[in-house]
Simulated scan of single mutants.
Amino acid sequence: MAFSKTTVSSLREKFAPVVTAFCNHPLEKAYHYLIVDAICTKVRERGAVPSRGLLLVIGVNGDGFHKILSFMAADPESEGSWGEFFSSLKDRGYKGVDLVVSDAHKGLMRAIGKHFQGAAPITRDRIFT
C-alpha cells in the first residue's frame, strides 16, 4: 500500500498532537518491572533514508498488567539516547522500578545502571537460554 506525500503530511499533522500528549502524560501508577528495547527501522530525513531506532519501554505492575509507557526515536545503541529517554520517564513522575529486562547492549546497560540505581537488570539472553 502506498500513500501520497499529501496524505502522509495530513496524517502527521492529525496525529502529532496525540503522540506528543501520550509521550508527555504523567506516569503516576507503579510499574515495578520494565521491559526496554529498540526497534530499528528506516526513516526519511532530509532526502536520505538512514536506519533509526524507536526506543520503547513497557511497564508491568505487580498484577502482571502491562502498558507501553513511552517511546522515542533515537540512536538505539547510545547510552546518551537511553539516558535521555529514561530521564524523560523520571521527569514525568516514573519511580519505583525493581527489575529491568533488556538486551545486553553496553550503552543500554550503562544507562540502566545510572538511571535506575538499585534495580536488578536482567538481559533477555539470561531468560531464554
Rank of each mutant, 00 (worst) to 15 (best):
M1F: 15
F3A: 09
K5R: 12
T7C: 13
V8M: 01
S10V: 05
L11T: 06
L11H: 08
R12E: 00
R12Q: 00
F15E: 03
V18Q: 07
T20P: 00
F22E: 07
F22Q: 01
C23R: 04
N24K: 09
L27D: 11
L27N: 05
E28V: 06
K29Q: 15
A30E: 15
Y31A: 06
Y31M: 07
H32R: 15
Y33H: 03
L34S: 02
I35R: 00
K42W: 14
K42V: 10
V43E: 03
R44G: 06
R46C: 11
R46L: 01
V49G: 02
V49H: 08
L55C: 06
L56D: 09
V57K: 11
I58W: 01
I58Q: 10
I58E: 13
V60M: 14
V60E: 00
G64F: 12
F65E: 14
H66S: 07
H66I: 06
I68K: 01
I68V: 13
S70C: 13
S70N: 11
S70W: 02
F71N: 08
F71P: 04
M72N: 11
A73P: 00
A74T: 06
A74G: 10
A74F: 09
D75V: 03
P76T: 08
P76E: 15
E77V: 11
S78P: 01
S78F: 14
S78G: 04
E79C: 08
E79K: 11
G80T: 14
S81R: 10
S81L: 04
S81K: 00
E84M: 12
F85P: 02
L89W: 01
K90N: 12
R92N: 09
G93Q: 07
Y94F: 15
K95E: 11
K95V: 15
K95T: 15
V97N: 02
L99Y: 12
V100I: 09
V100R: 01
V100T: 04
V100H: 00
V101N: 09
V101G: 02
V101R: 09
D103P: 10
A104V: 01
H105V: 11
H105N: 12
G107R: 03
L108Y: 03
M109G: 01
R110D: 05
G113P: 04
K114T: 06
H115S: 05
H115I: 04
H115V: 02
Q117D: 05
Q117N: 03
Q117G: 04
Q117S: 13
G118S: 02
G118V: 13
A119R: 05
P121I: 02
P121Y: 00
T123L: 04
D125M: 14
F128I: 09
T129C: 15
